[in-house]
Write a protein that binds this DNA or RNA. Structure first.
Lengths: 234, 234
DNA sequence: CGTGCTGTTGAGGACGATCAATGACGGTGG
DNA sequence: CCACCGTCATTGATCGTCCTCAACAGCACG
């Protein structure tokens, strides 16, 4: 039972049922490059991925994180020649479902509720981007804390307090240097927000974290209120 | 003849023809607050507006700028209860066209090309937000220069090298202090990018500006390739 | 037992924030 | 016509956050 970003269960069910191909992706591999040759809509079924772009100087800017139920590169379907080189990569081992565009065409045609649901999914992305812009004006600690809150929020369906990201991932997402992220993490551990024992990102005090982050989850409400769907991932 | 963000002329023509109410808005006034009571789709017909949010500490974060042909608060139509308090304000004197949601419903129903066009408009916004994220990792000068490039690009239909924004607007959009924006402007004038004479933002060397900004307009290509439409603004 | 990736630590410096005044300009009312 | 006021632009000084460079440590992997 997983939450589909920005859509009620019933609306995307026809789409989900049309997914025939399921593919495993190992950590670090590309789920889609930024190319225009895409012919499938991709749904993340298991694991965590991120959409990102390489900057000219080689740095990586992470835009969004994908959790199970999220679409990868939906914009390609709506607008194949769309902006540059937004790629999606697996941050952990993943499983994805694939759906040919022309099949998707048919699903949309036969069920008028599917397109608006996809539309809203794009809007949820935009909403997250806007929130990131707001947060980008706060201190490094708040920005990192905020990102962790977002991940806890979206992991609710999965459970556990360990966020399987590297400090590098966090740095590339919030836009601060890895070194500084490390120092922020030490600060968060000293504050009792993160576990002192483990090297992993393990949240031991969610309330305190949300407080430090001044986290207001309203910008995610559209995804919260929505139920999920299931699919057999083998 | 104005460009509609992310849509070909023919696609949005039926929508444009349905606009009956045209309203003038003076500089500084709200075009829509962030409220949920919205019952009209609003199209900017003349002037420049911005969508923004107030941060807790009172600062203003500008997300996007609207030029003639852009929609204001389209997300409200797709998802009325959508994210927080995104408001739209007029940065110059404006004229807006208004279209009741239920009329829009009918237009969408009767013309299957309208919805995808609106969808792409939302995606153009997301594309701009992503680009801003990339740019936010560069220096203040590049960020400001980049913003000016974007405005020149979108002003092409209007013409003129003067960008009618205040330094405060720029600061709130790129996320740096007004004082520093001012210093950046002096630097840009010294470099021969902006006019030394005028207090206004007057670009005298577009090529140099684009160079300083490392501006790559691909992220706007979806809007470029598209033609415009006309409407009588009285 | 090396090799590679991630995490950690230190030192020095730059960029931009903040605070506080002052200047320029346009509009308004006496 | 002039005094006043509000908004926006400009300038100086100080300070802090975060970056960069550089080195090393821990751990997983083959």
């Amino acid at each position: 039972m997983r939450g589909v970003a920005g859509a009620r269960k019933s609306e995307l069910q026809p789409l989900v049922e049309a997914i025939k191909v399921i593919r495993p992706i190992v950590r670090g591999e590309a789920i889609t490059d930024g190319g225009n040759s895409q012919r499938h809509l991709i749904v993340l079924l298991d694991g965590i991925a991120c959409s990102y772009e390489r900057l000219e100087d080689g740095r990586r800017q992470i835009f969004l994180f994908q959790y199970p139920g999220d679409f990868c590169g939906l914009h390609r379907y709506v607008w194949p020649a769309t902006s540059g080189h937004v790629a999606v990569a697996a941050l952990t081992d993943c499983k994805v479902g694939m759906l040919e565009y022309r099949v998707l065409d048919k699903v949309i045609e036969s069920d008028p509720a599917v397109a608006p649901a996809l539309w809203r999914s794009v809007m949820l992305d935009a909403s997250i981007l806007r929130e990131r812009m707001n947060v980008s004006r706060r201190s490094a600690l708040e920005r990192v804390a905020h990102l962790l809150c977002e991940h806890l929020h979206r992991r609710e369906a999965i459970g556990g307090a360990i966020i399987p990201l590297t400090q590098i991932d966090v740095a590339d997402a919030v836009g601060i240097s890895v070194v500084h992220v490390n120092r922020v993490f030490q600060e968060l551990r000293k504050l009792g927000v993160l576990s002192e024992k483990s090297r992993a990102i393990e949240v031991v005090n969610r309330v305190l974290l949300a407080d430090k982050a001044k986290f207001d989850d309203r910008y995610l409400h559209m995804s919260v209120a929505l139920s999920g769907w299931t699919i057999d991932t083998r």
